[in-house]
Design a protein around this nucleic acid. Structure first.
Length: 106
DNA sequence: CATATGACGATAT
DNA sequence: AATATCGCCATAT
């Protein structure tokens, strides 16, 4: 069933994140057309990631850290990322210089 | 219309 | 640096 425009664009943008790359909540919000709606991206993922079959694990916060809390998804997200070759460093952060998705870059 | 929510982000302390 | 607070805003109710 169809949803409202912003939600649809967020879902589509998340689907566009390639394997082996990550995007930030704020980045998804900007790409979906509402630059300050990062929290809404989180809300949408919380509500729809499983239902929509999204690659939700490719979305992290601005510091390259997994936003989910331990035993509330953190471990699963780390496993899914590492399966794609995305490793967390000793402090638990992803190197965004290597792994951040840069859409429409030549 | 009023309030609550949310896996954020920026700024202040 | 780590924590607290505030601003943000589309949806849900």
């Amino acid at each position: 069933m169809a949803r409202h425009a912003f939600t649809d664009r967020v879902i589509q943008t998340v689907r566009d994140i390639p394997a082996g790359k990550v995007a930030t909540y704020g980045q998804i919000a900007r790409l979906a057309g509402s630059p300050r709606a990062a929290r809404q991206v989180a809300r949408i993922l919380h509500a729809c990631s499983a239902k929509e079959g999204l690659p939700w694990h490719r979305v992290v916060n601005r510091e390259g850290r997994i936003a989910l809390k331990p035993f509330q998804g953190f471990e699963e997200q780390r496993r899914l990322l590492e399966r794609e070759g995305i490793r967390l460093d000793s402090s638990g952060a992803i190197d965004l210089r290597r792994f951040l998705w840069l859409p429409r870059q030549p």
